[in-house]
Amino acid sequence: MLRALRQHLLPSIALTAVVAVVVGLAYPIVVWGIGQVAFKNQANGSLLYRDGKVVGSALIGQSFTSKTGTPLPQYFQSRPSGTGTYAYNSTDSAASNYGPSDPRLVGFIPGFNTVGLNGEPSATNPFATKADPYCVPLTKSTGKPVISPEPGEKYEKTKTGSYVCDPTTVPERAMAYRKLNGLAPDAKVPVDAVTTSASGLDAGISIANADLQAPRVAKARHLPLRTVLALVRKYTIGSTWGFLGTPYVNVLELNLALENMRR
C-alpha cells in the first residue's frame, strides 16, 4: 500500500502542481504579455471607438434597432440573432439550434410539417393567413411559437380574428425584409438576411444583402446611393487569400463610418 502510494500518488500530486503552474498560469500570462506588446489592439478585442468612447468590437455584431426593437432605416441591419435574452447579447453567444424542418425555422409548410388543430397530421396549414401561408402561431399560455399543435390549445389572435404569426420564422423575416427595403413581394432575399448565425454575434452580412439595403439607407440619410455603395465596398472584408472563408460586409464598421460622415 505504502509502495503504491509512493509510486502513484506522490508523483501525481507533484506533477499536477507543476503542470498546473506551467500551463494554467505561466502559459496564458506569457501569451498575454506578448499580446499586450505586439498585438495590443487584437489581443484586447479589436475595440472600435467614437468620440473616445467604446462603441463595440469589430468582430462582434450589434443590433441597429430602436428602443422597442424596430429596425432603424438609417442603419444597415445585421443578421437576425439567437443569443440569450435579447439579440446580440455578447455574454450569451448562441445559435437558434432549430432543426432544418423545424416549424420555428421554416414555418408550417403544407404537406410537410403541418398538423391540424386536432393534433393529427394535416395536408393544409390551419393557421395560414392571407399574408403568411406558412404562419406559425404563438400559444396563449406561454407566448412561444407552437411546434406541434395539441387539441384544445389556444393561440394569440389579432383584433380582426386572424392568427398572430411568430415573426422569427424565415418566411416572416423574408416578408419583413422586403417591406423594410421596399422590395417586390416576390423578390428573392439573400439567405444570410433571414437566418441566425452560429454565434448569434455575426459581425457580417453578405454583399448582396448590403446592396439591397443600400437604397433605403441612402434615402434615410439623404446621401447619394453611390456614396453609400462606395462605403459598402470599403468595409467589405475579402476572404483570406481569396478562398479561406467568405467575403462579408462588416456592419458595425460600415454604420460607424456613415455616422461619422454626418459631422
Binding site: S96, N97, S197, G204, I205, A208, D211, P247, Y248
Partner: peptide, 14 residues
Amino acid sequence: TNPGGNLEGKDIRL
C-alpha cells in the same frame, strides 16, 4: 456577392 447555402447556424465569415 451571396455566399448562399444553408446559413442557419453558420457565421458568414466562415
